[in-house]
Amino acid sequence: MTREAEETWRSRVRGCLLGGAIGDALGGPVEFQDARTILAEHPDGVRSFVSGGPGWPEGTITDDTQMTLFTVEGLIRASVRTDRGLGFTVGVVQHAYDRWLDTQLLSGPSGDRDGWLQAEQWLYVRRAPGNTCLSALTEARKGEQKIPQFGAEAVNDSKGCGGVMRVAPFGLLPQPATTEWVFDSAATAAGYTHGHPTGKLASGALAAIVHELCAGATLDAALDTTTALLTQHPGHEESSTTLAFARHLAATAQPGPVTVERLGGGWVAEEALAIAVYAALAYPAPEQFLDALALAVTHSGDSDSTGAICGNLLGALHGETALPAELVFTVEGRPVILQLADDFALEFTRATRLHGDYGPHTAWTTRYPGW
């Protein structure tokens, strides 16, 4: 990777993670409102942060961003693990989700976990976490054991959006990761909580789109490549059909909540992805970032998830400089999000300077133990 290419990629990493957080925070307070109620308060769509009530101040993220951050941390730790000759194992991300589960069950850090993200007190709050994620991760724990079995797939038939809303970081992985590998790995990670094929395949599709965008593809080209991959998998029909419909609506229909809701409510994986893709296609230019986010969250469905995924897509497409500055400035957790983004970039471009030949017991491996 040339220096110029690396700088562009780093901007896309930051843009994807911060963009997702902004979309999440825009949509969170209106998630359980219908479009008519939302438009009565926000005639032009939700374009600024609002309070979600007591304990939910303006700019607050939800479980979507929480779990996305733990995905990033899990990927870094999976990479560190390769120093021990164990290979890059996606199952390490499941351990990260188990640590996220602690933030939903405990009032604060217990002190019996390693790594730094687990110690961030502000993450220990419930913001409408998905019941499927909670139940599947709880089931994965064996008795009082804190770490789930590597690679244990959820035993359910859920295709809720709790898998797709958290896997965009897989798409940020640079070469030698291929789009095919990214697709399959993100689908696997979604399967730790969501067992239905659509829940997994829609998740793989999001990661694949992000990966193509980070490589410089246009959104249309990224969707073409992803659709070709998607249709190779049994059970792809729900995801591929809904994505195709989103592209059709973006080309033919007037942007607005009525059109968004033709794609569904976003409560299930393929609908959440399709709504986000539709909004990004309707307003694809860098200066239209906020227009796309407002479209993605102003509807009667799962506004935080559709907003988060749209922000992931446009952040990966345009980079961090396209993000609305007034929202970047106030979104909850920005220092931690940027720290993780920069650490991710360091790990996947400068790993040998951080660990490996420089010794197994470094400050970096204390920060990111390899399991």
Rank of each mutant, 00 (worst) to 15 (best):
D44C: 07
P360R: 07
C16H: 06
T231Y: 02
T259H: 07
V46H: 04
G74W: 04
T321Y: 01
V13I: 15
T330H: 15
C16W: 12
G45D: 04
V277K: 04
T132R: 00
G85V: 05
I61Q: 09
G195L: 09
T68W: 07
L123T: 13
P176Y: 07
K200A: 12
A154V: 14
G74R: 10
D34F: 06
G264H: 01
Y278K: 08
G160M: 12
T132L: 08
L327I: 08
D112H: 08
A341N: 07
F49A: 06
S51H: 03
G370Y: 12
Q66N: 13
V125F: 03
L243K: 05
A296I: 06
V328W: 13
T259A: 13
F348Q: 14
D343N: 08
A272C: 12
G23R: 03
D342H: 10
H194Y: 07
G370A: 14
A308L: 04
A294K: 03
D220H: 11
G319P: 04
T241H: 14
Q288A: 08
G55M: 05
Y368E: 01
V297W: 00
G20N: 11
H361Y: 14
L223C: 09
G235V: 05
A222Y: 02
V46F: 09
L290S: 10
V90W: 12
Y368K: 00
D184S: 06
A244M: 00
A187I: 01
R36Q: 13
A276C: 01
L105Q: 15
P284R: 11
S203Q: 04
A363E: 11
T252R: 06
V277A: 00
G55Y: 09
T178M: 06
Y124N: 02
T198V: 05
F329M: 11
A25N: 02
D224I: 07
Y278Q: 00
P43V: 07
Y283S: 07
D357E: 13
G15M: 11
A207E: 11
T365R: 14
L314P: 05
E31P: 13
T321V: 14
P54C: 08
M165F: 07
T365A: 05
S239R: 00
D184E: 13
G59V: 04
A215G: 15
D357S: 14
Y124T: 00
R334N: 09
R77N: 02
V155I: 07
